[in-house]
C-alpha cells in the first residue's frame, strides 16, 4: 500500500476530531476526542516509516499511543471527577462560529502547505500532512484562547502538541530518537503539572475559570 493511501484516512481522522473538538462542549467528550486523535497520530509514523526503521518507529508509536491514548485521558478524567467542575466548557466564541473559523484555518493551512517547501518532502507527498499539522496547531491555539476553563486549556495544549507532532512526522527520519522521546516526556510533564495546577485552582476558588484569575484574592 502506498504512503498516501495510509496517510489520508489518518489525517482525515485528525481533522475531523479537530472540528468535533471545536463543536463539542462536554469535557468528557473532548477528552475522548483528544485521546482518539492521539492514538491515530501515534500509528502514523510507524506506518509511514515502518519499512526502513521498524523497531524505532514502532517504539515511538507505542510510547505516544500509551501516553496520549491512555495516560492523558486518565489524568484529565481524574481531575474532572475530583475537581467537581461544571461538565460543560464555556467558550468565549460560539461553537458554530468556532467551526466556521476552523474551516477558515483549514483553507489557510492548505494554502501555506501548498507553498511551503520542506527539506524532507522529496520521497513523500506531504502537502496534506503539512496542512493538516498546521491546521491542528492553529485550532489547538484557538481552543486554548477561546475557552474559559483551565481544563480546556490543557486540552488545547495537547492539540497543539499533536499538530507539532504531525509536522515532526514529515522529518521523523532525520530527528534522533532521543529528541522525540524528550518531546514526549516534556508533553507528559506539562500535562501532569497543568492537571495538578487546575486541581489546586478548583480547590482554592471553587471554579477553574481562567478569566476570573486576573485579580488577586485577598
Amino acid at each position: 500500500m502506498s504512503d498516501g493511501a495510509v496517510m489520508e484516512p489518518i489525517l482525515v481522522v485528525l481533522l475531523v476530531t479537530d472540528f468535533l473538538l471545536l463543536g463539542s462542549s462536554r469535557f468528557r467528550t473532548c477528552i475522548k476526542l483528544v485521546s482518539v486523535q492521539g492514538v491515530a497520530l501515534g500509528i502514523l509514523p510507524a506506518l509511514l516509516h515502518g519499512a526502513e526503521n521498524s523497531v524505532r518507529a514502532w517504539l515511538l508509536a507505542g510510547g505516544s499511543i500509551v501516553l496520549k491514548g491512555v495516560v492523558f485521558p486518565w489524568l484529565l478524567l481524574r481531575i474532572l471527577r475530583e475537581a467537581q467542575v461544571r461538565r460543560e466548557a464555556q467558550p468565549f466564541v460560539g461553537h458554530s462560529l468556532s467551526i466556521l473559523l476552523g474551516v477558515g484555518v483549514l483553507i489557510f493551512s492548505l494554502w501555506v502547505g501548498s507553498t511551503l517547501v520542506l527539506p524532507a518532502t522529496a520521497e513523500l507527498d506531504t502537502s496534506l500532512l503539512v496542512s493538516a499539522g498546521l491546521a491542528t496547531l492553529l485550532i489547538g491555539l484557538f481552543l486554548t484562547i477561546s475557552r474559559r476553563t483551565a481544563l480546556s486549556q490543557v486540552l488545547g495544549y495537547i492539540v497543539v502538541e499533536n499538530g507539532i507532532y504531525t509536522f515532526g512526522v514529515v522529518l521523523v527520519g532525520g530527528v534522533p530518537a532521543l529528541v522525540e522521546l524528550g518531546v514526549l516526556m516534556d508533553a507528559f510533564v506539562a500535562v501532569f503539572i497543568m492537571s495538578i495546577a487546575a486541581y489546586h485552582i478548583s480547590r482554592e476558588f471553587e471554579h477553574i475559570n481562567v478569566d476570573q484569575l486576573d485579580r488577586l484574592k485577598g
Partner: peptide, 8 residues
Amino acid sequence: VGAMALSA
C-alpha cells in the same frame, strides 16, 4: 455547520 465543515 459541522456537516458543512465535513463537506469542506
